[in-house]
Amino acid sequence: MIIEMKNIRKSFDGLEVLKDISFGVDSGEVVSIIGPSGSGKSTLLRCATFLETIDGGEILYMGEHAAHTDESGNAVYVSPHELRHFRSYCGLVFQQFNLFPHYSILKNIIDAPVHVQHRNIEEAKTEAMELLSKMGIADKADAYPYQLSGGQQQRVAIARALAMNPEILFFDEPTSALDPELTGEVLKVIRQLADEKMTMVVVTHEMPFAKAVSNRVIFMDGGVIVEQGDPLKVFEDPQEERTKQFLRVFER
């Protein structure tokens, strides 16, 4: 298992957002998370990538504990220094891209490898150019984010995350901020990564994509995992009433 989250609990001032959620992702697996807005999908991803701290439960990367629960039921994290090591296992692609506007595309991608991982700058550049070619935007290396379309910016964000060589990449609604005609180009590169056996967890409302690309679909609602399994099974023959209701909305 790349990541394992066990019995995760998370509240925001009294409001319980994640209620005892457990899930794990194997190497090379592509997991889609679907569910209505407010069901806790983003919070789950943010806990997995250490942007939020869990209240209770366990987080393991590569079998090692990043957080565990003490006798009183509270989550305890490893030291900030050790946490940096756990962070390096995961990457996150945001709905709003969050590129650095003052850096060129190339610099957006190489800055963290060079200044966080202390990699050789030439090597980092070569690798960044390869990633940009793969994303189909090698000609944009010297441009600035504002000069790119949303779809191109999101592909840069994906390249930036991949440049850190994470074990697992999380996507939080990577196409939700894009005009409909631009979602395809982003989904295409995610699909391409799936073909290369990149381990990924994708929160998405793109049902055909989830069905076609993922090995497993998780349906979340109200802070719990209502149903999960093989995409064909979940989409064609959902067992839970709530899943059926949710999926009905997406059929036309």
Partner: peptide
């Protein structure tokens, strides 16, 4: 400065001072 800038830095492993000096401050100055 949008909170997403800080979050991107955090996920990429920047330290607090790297985040401020490399990402936040240049944008603030502009």
């Amino acid at each position: 400065i949008p909170v997403g800038q800080y979050e991107a830095c955090e996920v990429l492993g920047y330290t607090k001072s790297q985040t401020f000096m490399r990402v936040i401050l240049p944008q603030v100055i502009k």
